[in-house]
């Protein structure tokens, strides 16, 4: 299912590009803000929700998932190196599952670890574990979505950013109905349940969140596999 060689090339490609440095500032900012708020003696009830949910699940998780999720496949499509991987008798399913696994692990670690630390600062290891679990759920759904976007559109970063900013960020806060299709809501709902805390305000119920996250993950993966089977190299005429 997972192809080691594809995974290795994907990881080297991801960390070899300068774009990866973009991943560093956001987690640092997250921990920094948590430490700062705590250092000034603010009560966690006042800062936990804006920092952990507003910044953590609302910005850090989706942005990093976007950079990684499009980086594992989209950048190889852009520069044409994907053709070398595709011109092999490999099941397309294996290629997508490998890329998905790399994206999920990198995203979950890059966001989950600082969120865990911020959770420790705000309250307890239990809260930290909840936040990390939320990140893991979000990493699956976002990675599958952005992987599929990489194959559906030529501008996956732009479309992904529109989804995160406009759909999740703006509409998700104005209109309640769009929240059910917002991955960040699933992440915070799961984090609130696992973390057993009322510091985080979940707006979508946990069963719905888990179901929707699974739907996003499975749907995105299946779509990506099918699109990869029909992967077309642009010719000289187009």
């Amino acid at each position: 299912m997972i192809n080691i060689t594809v995974a290795r090339i994907t990881i080297r490609g991801l960390f070899g590009r300068r774009r990866f440095l973009l991943l560093l500032p956001l987690p640092v900012l997250l921990i920094g803000l948590a430490l700062l708020a705590d250092g000034f003696g603010a009560r966690p009830a006042d800062w936990a929700n804006p920092v952990l949910v507003g910044l953590g699940f609302g910005a850090v998780l989706p942005v990093i998932a976007l950079i990684v999720g499009t980086g594992v496949l989209g950048s190889e499509i852009d520069d044409g190196t994907l053709v070398h991987v595709l011109a092999k008798p490999l099941p397309r399913r294996d290629i997508i599952l490998t890329k998905l696994a790399v994206a999920v692990v990198v995203t979950a670690v890059t966001v989950g670890v600082p969120m865990f630390v911020a959770g420790l600062v705000a309250g307890s290891a239990r809260l930290g574990a909840g936040l990390a679990a939320g990140c893991a759920v979000g990493a699956f759904a976002y990675s599958a979505l952005f992987l599929a976007l990489s194959l559906v559109t030529r501008r996956p970063v732009l479309v992904g950013l529109l989804y995160v900013l406009i759909w999740e960020g703006l509409l998700g806060n104005l209109l309640g109905g769009t929240r059910i299709l917002a991955i960040q809501q699933y992440a915070s709902a799961v984090a609130a349940r696992v973390g057993d805390t009322d510091l985080l305000i979940g707006r979508v119920s946990v069963p719905v969140s888990v179901t929707m996250a699974v739907l996003f993950t499975v749907g995105g993966t299946l779509l990506a596999i099918d699109r990869l089977r029909s992967f077309t190299v642009a010719g000289e005429t187009s």
């Binding site: 044409g80 190196t81 070398h84 190299v233």
Partner: peptide, 13 residues
């Protein structure tokens, strides 16, 4: 085997 025209290789390898 295919050698495409586009000069795209994983240049970090």
């Amino acid at each position: 085997g295919l050698v495409s025209e586009r000069e795209a290789v994983h240049s970090f390898l």
